[in-house]
Write a protein that binds this DNA or RNA. Structure first.
Lengths: 337, 337
DNA sequence: TCCAGAAGTTACAACGTTGTAGAACGAAGG
DNA sequence: CCTTCGTTCTACAACGTTGTAACTTCTGGA
């Protein structure tokens, strides 16, 4: 059925190993031979069987990317960058959705699927310190997200704490004092929610503002609906606030919707600030002031780091952590001071 | 390094083929033997080498999904559904981005990458009738999008024309007469833009409203920025309109932003209607009236169709086209009559 | 008791590729 | 003219799995 090296070899009148050598760029081949072979390849439309190649060589030229959900814009945009960066490096990307569930994340790490893969870029939500052994396998793993645990793998992270602190200080500098936050999730041992909350508290402390628990609204998932729901909670509770910091843009946008429905003006009555700088943040009404966490850099760096780890010599190197630069993007929902 | 069938067989004290038989559910195996083998598998943590399995069996249990860009919310949500449906069927999904570019779509179809795949779900933008031969290969392909060409493969589609017509008629029924559209793209031979435009024109014709070219705004890409840009165009041109039909939600949301900036009230001055029913449509201010094209059904059906085609007997069957049901989702940006 | 057939297990041969080792060839040096 | 050495090509043996076919071992019926 399919054309193999042997078929090409026969047509070109050489041994099939010579064809293999041509394909793999083996240097000692006469130009005439190479040309004969290439002509035969073109004529037959030969395509190497990648399963056979992987079996023999151990390389798959495939990476896996595991994110909680692809329909969260943040992860969609991240995936888009990762796939593009992988493609540039000649790799294809297998996308898995974990739902942010620890069991599914663990199952994935054990899964035979991954042996058709050279490495994994994982954006974990559920894993904890006790899962370190699961990461000790032979498969190179690059974690996205703060190095909150001592895992034996590379990390590429955003500066959650610093960025949340900077965002909060930005609000404080613009004169806000009662700053609500949306997105806290105590179930997460040490995920973004915890870190961003910490940054928020640091900023308050540094500015002599007391931390008020009533201003903290929970949201286990970070969809729009969760942001809307959390904002309803805040309003129902009747606590006064003059700003809202959503732990991601989606939450902030959902919250903004509810604020406007209830007649509050943004930013006059309440300033709103998000986190992620999604495409849609710029087009919301009002446009959303937010934190650009350096998504593209993170994606490119993750692929690069994984690639380095895959290379023979990289396997032994010490785990490395690299953090992206962030920036507060000033827009209408929270104008600068 | 890795554990193989042989290692398991040795520990269990059987031939390695018996282990293979256990794994593949071969029926004639004594319970005692099966148990011995399973214990050995568990003890050694054996995982089958999927490359070897593919090489031998020809199956890869992997499908490819190719979309223009994953950071367009529509495709992100679609991909999310496809990956989930594939996962349920025990398949992993390889995601490719084509940029909607004909050359890249063609290159993908020729690519050896796909031979590590059992089939492809393709959301094409650039391909035309002349590319039919490229689809005649041995790889099963399911096309997403209207069957506008006579391609030798299955199609799973949304009812672009009917849905656009229904959407336009919805606007007409609510009293609008000067309905602008955003998203036309004459470069596309027969893509969604053309089809939705046709539905729009059919609705106008059916209601005795004359088609006015000045109400048509182009947008080659369908990002937010393109919708904003197109709306600027319309406003600059100075044509009067009392409604806007964006060919997708993203365009509509971008347009809505510009409308509001320029002081027009939605829906009092201008009604806005989108297409796709993205998550964000419900949380925009005002919430966006839109068309739900049946994305989840499309994703599930695409996987199902591909699976049927992959099965031995399915290969010969006639190409099939299946269309999703749609619905106009009434929200604030364009209230019902 | 023997035989037929089913149940349970195994041996062998692929699948298509690449790594290793070495053979054949030609050119250069003695 | 023979040797040596680099260049160019080839033969062989894996990689880990599954399909085929055959070989044992049981079971039940005559």
């Amino acid at each position: 059925m399919a054309v193999t090296l042997r078929d090409v070899a026969e047509l070109a009148g050489v041994s099939f190993k010579t064809v293999s050598n041509v394909i793999n760029g083996y240097p000692h081949i006469r130009p005439a031979t190479r040309e004969k072979v290439e002509r035969a390849i073109a004529e037959l439309g030969y395509k190497p069987n990648l399963s056979a190649r992987s079996l023999r060589s151990g390389r798959t030229d495939t990476i896996a990317l595991a994110v909680p959900e692809l329909n969260l814009s943040y992860f969609a945009e991240l995936a888009s960058f990762v796939i593009a960066a992988a493609e540039e490096a000649g790799l294809v990307t297998l996308v898995e959705q974990t739902g942010g569930d620890r069991d599914r994340e663990l199952a994935l790490l054990q899964s035979p699927r991954l042996n058709r893969t050279d490495g994994l870029i994982l954006s974990p939500l559920g894993l904890g310190q006790e899962d370190a052994p699961a990461l000790g396998g032979p498969l190179p793993v690059v974690m996205l997200g703060e190095r909150t645990f001592d895992w034996p793998c590379d990390h590429v992270t955003m500066r959650n704490v610093e960025a949340a602190r900077a965002a909060t200080e930005y609000l404080i500098a613009s004169g806000r004092r009662r700053i609500a936050v949306i997105g806290e999730n105590e179930a997460e041992v040490m995920g973004s929610a915890r870190l961003r909350l910490r940054g928020y508290r640091e900023a308050l402390a540094a500015n002599g503002i007391e931390y008020d628990e009533r201003l903290v609204a929970r949201a286990t998932l970070w969809h729009r609906a969760d942001g809307a729901h959390a904002m309803h909670d805040l309003l129902d509770r009747g606590v006064a606030f003059d700003a809202v910091f959503g732990f991601n843009d989606t939450l902030a946008l959902g919250a903004m919707r509810v604020l406007q429905e209830s007649g509050l003006r943004i930013p006059q009555d309440v300033a709103v600030l998000g986190f992620d700088d999604l495409d849609e943040a710029a087009y919301a009404i009002p446009s959303l002031t937010t934190v650009d966490p350096g998504r593209e850099w993170i994606a490119r760096t993750a692929v690069e780091t994984l690639l380095a780890r895959i290379g023979r010599e990289g396997a032994a190197a010490e785990p490395r952590t690299r953090a992206a630069d962030f920036a507060v993007i000033e827009r209408e929902s929270a104008p600068p001071a």
